[in-house]
Amino acid sequence: MTSVQVVAAVAVLAVPFLGADRYLLKVLTFVGVNTLIVLGLALLFGYAGQVSLGHAAFFGIGAYTSAYLSSALGLPWLVAVAAAVGLTACAGWAVAVPGLRLKGHYLAMATLGFNEIMSVAFVEARRFTGGNDGLGGVPFPSIGPYELDTPASLYLLVWGVALVALVGAANIVKSRPGRAMRALHCTEPGASACGIDVSSVKVRAFTLSAALAGLAGSLYAHTVGFISPTTFGLDLSILLVAAVVLGGRESLAGPVVAMAALTLLQYLGALVPGLSRQAAEAVQDWVPDIVGLTVVGVLIARSRGFRLRGRRGVPERGGQG
């Protein structure tokens, strides 16, 4: 890691000790949860070039699995997390194997369909999900007698996991599997002529990406204690794709920063002191439009050869310079 990255990581983890209030910590914890999901999508979409408009559904599968196992069945937190990640990975694999035969718009439509199906399932499978009323009473994360029940400790848990995932993703993209993803994004025949099993790499990337969303879902459920279907709708999936588009191809930092900005935009009213209620509501109402217009603007600017940043989100230092 470079010194800049270390400083950034320390700064993120220092936030709870700087006297941030409970509400701000909660919002920033959501930013951490979304960071985890967008990391997975950045690998899948930004590196391997395979779009998914279904990541909110994987987020939901992780959240409901973890919530149900720990609140209804009373399983320990770590078991619930592991089961949530495992089940979401399986779901991701099950979507990827048939879905990745499709390309571009067709893959987008298939994953969008998956998100809609899961949205209905979260409402209709009342026995497990509580339907539209949601699922409450999800216990805080705990290991034995130790329970993380303060906003600060939950913040540190979520961001700790997110930072570990960020380092892991950065390691992946600079070695063999990362090169394979980038290669098949550029040209699939070229990649297979180098011995890359293109469909296998795609399925692995998709499964890993879904598993990260599932992990985020599990952390989210135990952080807020209550989940309901609207959180896991298409809106979030679109926001995630927008963040990766804004953040740039072959970048991790870009999508993470973009997703943080898009997440904070929704809480603008509460975060900016002195902003009138009407102004805050207006911004909230217009979030989808702001996002859409920004994406269009960025795409037009890029197509004219205008680049905001250098090529890499993760500078490679150390190793063989």
Partner: peptide
């Protein structure tokens, strides 16, 4: 059919894909 977003060295490294073992 080069990998246009990658450096020359990275292109050559992709050619070594099958002889490397690092999984995700």
């Amino acid at each position: 059919r080069l990998f246009d977003t990658m450096t020359v060295e990275e292109n050559v490294l992709v050619g070594m894909h099958l002889r490397l073992s690092a999984s995700f």
